Simulated scan of single mutants.
Amino acid sequence: MKAKNMITVLLLATAMTVTAQRKISVADLPPGAAEFIEKYFPGRTIAIAKKDWEHGEKGFEVILSDNTEVEFWKDGTWREIDGRGKPIPTDYIAPSIVAYVAKNYPNEKITHIDYGHKDVDVDLTGKIDLEFTKDGKFLKAD
Rank of each mutant, 00 (worst) to 15 (best):
V70S: 06
I93E: 04
K58P: 09
P87M: 03
T19R: 14
I7M: 08
A3M: 08
I46M: 10
I81M: 05
K134M: 09
L12G: 05
Y40T: 09
A47T: 13
T133P: 05
Y100I: 01
K58I: 09
K137L: 08
T17F: 14
I128D: 05
D123E: 11
K137F: 05
F60P: 03
N5H: 11
V98N: 06
A47G: 00
P42N: 09
F60V: 07
T77F: 02
W73I: 04
G43Y: 05
D82F: 07
S25T: 15
E57S: 13
V26Y: 09
D114W: 10
P106I: 08
W78G: 08
E38A: 14
W53T: 14
H112F: 15
K109R: 14
D28W: 03
K118C: 02
Y100G: 03
I7R: 09
A99Y: 02
A33G: 08
K140D: 02
T133C: 03
F36H: 10
H55Q: 12
K23N: 14
V98G: 01
G85T: 03
A13S: 15
T111C: 10
A94W: 01
P106C: 12
E80L: 13
K58G: 06
R84N: 15
E69T: 14
T14E: 14
V62K: 03
Y40H: 15
V70W: 00
A33W: 05
L64W: 12
W73A: 11
K51P: 00
K51F: 01
D135G: 04
F60T: 03
I97Y: 02
K74G: 12
P106R: 06
Y40K: 12
H55G: 04
I88S: 01
E71C: 12
E61A: 13
A13I: 15
L124E: 06
I81T: 09
E108I: 05
G83T: 05
V18C: 08
Y92F: 15
M1A: 14
T45L: 08
V62F: 02
P30H: 01
L130G: 03
I93R: 00
A99R: 10
P89W: 05
A94K: 13
W78H: 09
M16S: 13
H117C: 11
F72W: 00
F60D: 04
K134Q: 10
T77W: 04
I7P: 00
L130Q: 04
I37D: 05
E131V: 08
K109E: 13
E108Y: 09
P30G: 01
N5R: 12
P30T: 02
K74D: 15
E131S: 09
N5G: 00
